[in-house]
Design a protein around this nucleic acid. Structure first.
Lengths: 202, 202
DNA sequence: CGCGTTTGCCCGAATTTTCGGACAAAAAAT
DNA sequence: ATTTTTTGTCCGAAAATTCGGGCAAACGCG
């Protein structure tokens, strides 16, 4: 489960109060006093969400939102807003903010919203990981000649069998349904060394 | 984008009002008057979310929540609650409800919450699809003998090349970096017929 | 209707792969 | 310390694969 919450809030008292609330819930607050300080933490694949005040002296919440979107369009940004700024916050939602919280807001409400955002973020990151993995696999299915592709696949199979067999060639050969000698032949051609797959040597 | 919203609300006026609000936002409401009527729509991989009143004469929102979780633990359930029932709703969150809305609630707020829930649901379903695909692929990497596995992989490669080449063997052979005759040899062994990959024949 | 291109298939030789047998060295068990 | 098992390598023959050449039939096009 993700836990990071990048807090952007210029009011020191409120900022620390929020941070403390989050810590009590086993979350991992990263308190910053403004855009400049927060900027370096905002990056693609950030393992958490952003909780930012909407009205700040230097840069406002929209700046944070826009910057976050350039770094990662699926990074949830929750805006903290005074009652009078609610229409502004609703506008921010249309521009891609994840949610907003009206100040002052009860800790419960804030935590509920943060948990939703964090679990949303977790899903996004999970999705990216799985998709990357899928792309990796399909990659070497579209490059090189037939024999090259088959060779990399054969290498994968043999290496995985060797890994399962703790580097024991005879055992791996049996699992693959081929004589031991044949596996040695193939390993020679593919330059696979059995020793590299001994779990003990790790 | 997902659009279905299964509405469970015994008050006919409110139910229709909600449904109308959703339709104006291009959502796809499924209005029902209670658990019994809604029950058949609640199933695994439901392409939408549930919006249920928490206090109803027959079964209450908790019944809906629990039933939904047996069908699909990641199916977002949003509970509609009167002001006095907010503590109950918060308890429901701990039991896995996605969010709650306090009646009466402005259409904007409801739509914001629904959009969050729907996008959350979309991510979950996307995730499942990709994971299924990944599992499919890794399946035939762990069964059968080495030659069997290589054969299925070779079949995949050749078939995909033939598909790309519109069933033209010579063209596919060139793409695979092997002489045309060799590809015929392999196709014979794997019992692949080129004609089956002609886009024109579809 | 010709005419050039492409397909699908067969042949045969060169090359590669498979696989059993054998054996010394290393590792494990007794 | 000795026996047993396992590893890694080499050999050689049988089997399979590769691939160029050739050829009849089908297809596509002007």
């Amino acid at each position: 489960m993700l836990t990071k919450v990048l807090i952007i809030e210029d009011d020191t008292v409120l900022r620390n109060s929020i941070a403390q609330t989050l810590e009590l819930e086993d979350l991992d607050p990263i308190p910053t006093n403004g855009f400049t300080q927060a900027r370096r933490s905002i990056r693609s694949n950030f393992r958490g969400v952003i909780l930012s005040d909407i009205r700040m002296p230097d840069h406002d919440g929209f700046d944070v939102l826009r910057f976050a979107q350039t770094k990662d369009p699926d990074l949830p940004v929750i805006l903290l807003t005074g009652h009078s700024d609610v229409p502004t916050a609703k506008r921010a939602l249309k521009e891609g903010a994840y949610d907003y919280l009206e100040k002052p807001c009860p800790p419960d409400t804030m935590l509920e919203t943060l948990h939703r955002a964090l679990s949303h973020r977790a899903l996004i990151l999970e999705n990216r990981e799985v998709r990357d993995e899928l792309e990796q696999i399909s990659m070497d299915q579209t490059v090189g000649t037939l024999s090259e592709r088959l060779e990399t696949h054969e290498r994968r199979i043999i290496e995985s069998a060797l890994y399962e067999a703790d580097g024991k060639v005879a055992q791996a050969a049996e699992a693959l349904g081929i004589p031991r000698n044949t596996l040695y032949d193939r390993m020679g051609k593919l330059q696979i060394i059995a020793k590299a797959f001994r779990k003990s040597s790790m």
